[in-house]
Design a protein around this nucleic acid. Structure first.
Lengths: 221, 221
DNA sequence: CGGAATCCTCTTCGATACTG
DNA sequence: CAGTATCGAAGAGGATTCCG
């Protein structure tokens, strides 16, 4: 498996030698949410064959973008995680996500959707335009997804799993409601009234959070 | 030719549906230097088959990233150029170029090298870290390449061809010397002494320009 | 059972030849 | 000059099997 190269002495071409193959950047996206095991990566990337996943991880590892780690006991399982060099890619992924967001159809069709992916774009917006005075840790449970958004210190971040410390707000909902809230087609108040949403903690923090999320408008091709 | 998609309702995945195929971002890179004809694109992207180039241009065009234009008379030839949506990609290309730069081998091997590609990274550095009080238009003639760097108003930019107005400084050199200057392994003074470089105009401006170009250090894999 | 290597089919890529 | 047509080679996708 001799890795293909553009053979150009150019930073962009070199970056694409490492990251430009199919699925590579989506693997990096998954790892921006925190360390993941092989199986979880495969589950979040349907269509990616197990042989390719292994090959991509090998390529990314030898380029110093991802590394293998071991979760602390009692888990003791092997996980893949971003190295510092991989973490450097986060702002580029966010920029690309915002750029691509304008090309997304309003209706997702039957495409796979994950709330954490939308949360990544939200972080990107807050990174770039500030998050006002919204602070705190927000734990989300959207169908089978568990992730949390921390706006405590530094940059906003989405991480998978449950927060290490009790969150300020805990939000339980389903995927359509989450997307409707993010797109501001629905207010938390109305979602609560219709029993589409459950909130633990200070609800006003959630209102404040959603007020900052003005994702860019979508423009059709 | 039904264009392949990741089928994920995610901005990044959508961006990669459009830009993630082989060669696409390098085509965009070429067009960041200004409008180009089909042949010039093909010449700068060896290894890219003409059928693929046509296919990529079609895909990029239908995604609203590139458009067809016609050069003003008497040229009257068809060119491809970035649309505003394509121009939005410039900062991401620059970020990726800087990220990939650290992975470039010191010795280019027998990879294709272009001075304009290095100039793109230089612009990226100046974009991010400021260009001090360096101002002006710098025309470069590096072997068969003609491009210019403008630091007049707004952001630094590299464009191919010759500047519309007479440049403040005109620099003629060869590729190894250009790279040595950019990497600061060589000073303009010494290059001039060794007859590797010719400068028209205020030479101190060139010194000032090169002083700003501290490209990131390269770290091997 | 999770983490991969193997096999096989299908699509895409890359190079050349060809056409308006 | 600006593409289209063609074809062998390489890569992707899916199922299955192998290892620990």
């Amino acid at each position: 498996m001799t890795t293909r190269s553009y053979r150009q002495h150019c930073g962009l071409a070199r970056a694409l030698d490492v990251l430009g193959e199919r699925w590579s950047l989506l693997i990096v996206r998954e790892l921006t949410f925190g360390p993941k095991r092989y199986r979880d990566l495969a589950d979040n990337l349907p269509g990616l064959g197990t042989n390719l996943l292994a090959a991509r991880l090998r390529t990314l590892e030898s380029a110093g973008v991802v590394g293998k780690g071991v979760l602390p006991p009692p888990a003791n399982v092997q996980v893949y995680e971003l190295t510092p060099r991989g973490e450097q890619l986060r702002p580029m992924l966010e920029d690309l996500a915002l750029w691509g967001f304008q090309l997304l159809p309003d209706d997702g069709g039957d495409d796979l959707a994950r709330a954490a992916w939308a949360a990544l774009s939200m972080c990107a917006v807050m990174d770039r335009e500030g998050s006002g005075d919204v602070r705190g840790t927000f734990a989300f449970e959207v169908e089978d997804e568990r992730f949390y958004l921390s706006l405590t210190a530094g940059e906003p971040r989405v991480r998978n799993g449950v927060p290490p410390d009790p969150p300020d707000v805990r939000v339980v909902t389903d995927l359509p409601t989450f997307f409707a809230l993010a797109a501001r087609r629905l207010t938390p108040a109305k979602a609560l009234r219709d029993d589409l949403l459950a909130v633990d903690g200070d609800r006003r923090r959630l209102d404040a959070l959603l007020a900052v999320f003005h994702l860019p408008a979508r423009a059709p091709a």
